[in-house]
Design a protein around this nucleic acid. Structure first.
Length: 270
DNA sequence: CCCGGAACCTGAAGGC
DNA sequence: TGCCTTCAGGTTCCGG
């Protein structure tokens, strides 16, 4: 499940291989991967454009194109972008291929077909609607407090709302709440100042550690070179069904909050 | 306007 | 053993 650390890892590993390269063609094995414009126009407009660089906003990858526009890619749950040569057999479940002028290619592999590509202009509305980047300097404790103050729902649900903070998904929300010793059902606007401070620190700590470990390969996530990340090995609660709390030994609990599995220690998190 | 749930998909895991 | 059901989750859409 690519969240901020996984998408950032993909961005940093893909960028050196494709920056400055030009797109010689696009293959669509499943047209549903293109959200806009029409599949045919998508191919026509991309062909011949060069990649000036790759950015990231939340869980979105932003390819800056020489024509001034953006290629926006979201990997959703099972997507991966793999680097290869045009002479090789593309990996299984490859839904789209971006061919580059040096004979290499980016294969968009996505077993579940949730991922999407889209051409957009700078200042795109979807990207603009995202909340602040949690790892940027401007994301202070008071910004977190102000963002959460508008929501009275469970903190777990609010943390994964991309319009509140960008980039946090199910796994890292569970990890951050555990590190901050906050129960996921606690009302978002009911946190104490001490709790807000712990949560702010925990969000950054958890995300930075996961980027350092090149992301978490709990499912289908793999890096552009095909390697896995190791962040999941450091998870304290996420996806650890039936295990014990690493701090107090209490069996971990799993709740369903807003339809999402949520792991917690019922003793440490109050 | 805000909140919550369904839909989109398919592989994996669980149940009988 | 094997088939059928359920689960997993990011985002968008829709109904209350």
């Amino acid at each position: 499940m690519p969240e901020l650390p996984e998408v950032e890892t993909i961005r940093s590993e893909l960028a050196p291989a494709v920056t400055g390269r030009c797109i010689s063609g696009v293959t669509l094995n499943w047209e549903g991967m293109v959200a806009a414009p029409s599949p045919q126009e998508f191919i026509t407009r991309l062909k011949g454009q060069c990649i000036k660089g790759i950015g990231r906003r939340g869980k979105y990858l932003l390819f800056y194109l020489s024509g001034g526009g953006l290629l926006i890619i979201h990997l959703k749950m099972s997507g991966a972008l793999l680097l290869g040569r045009d002479t090789e057999l593309p990996p299984g479940y490859t839904r789209a291929i971006i061919h580059l002028d040096n004979g290499s290619r980016i294969s968009f592999r996505d077993p579940r077909k949730f991922g999407r590509m889209r051409l957009a202009a700078e200042g795109d509305a979807v990207i603009s609607a995202l909340g602040p980047e949690p790892l940027e300097e401007g994301f202070t404790v008071s910004v977190l407090k102000e963002r959460l103050a508008r929501h009275k729902g469970p903190i777990k649900a609010v943390l994964i709302d991309q319009s509140v903070i960008a980039g946090i998904g199910n796994m890292y929300a569970d990890e951050a709440l555990f590190a901050a010793r906050i129960h996921p059902l606690m009302s978002a606007n009911g946190l104490s100042d001490a709790g807000l401070k712990r949560l702010h620190h925990a969000i950054r700590e958890v995300l930075v550690a996961a980027i350092g470990a090149k992301g978490a390969s709990v499912n289908t996530y793999i890096r552009p070179g095909g390697q896995k990340g190791s962040a999941h090995q450091e998870f304290k609660v996420a996806h650890r069904r039936g295990e014990k709390c690493p701090v107090c030994g209490t069996p971990l609990e799993r709740l369903v909050i807003r339809g999402r599995g949520s792991y917690l220690c019922p003793r440490c998190q109050v």
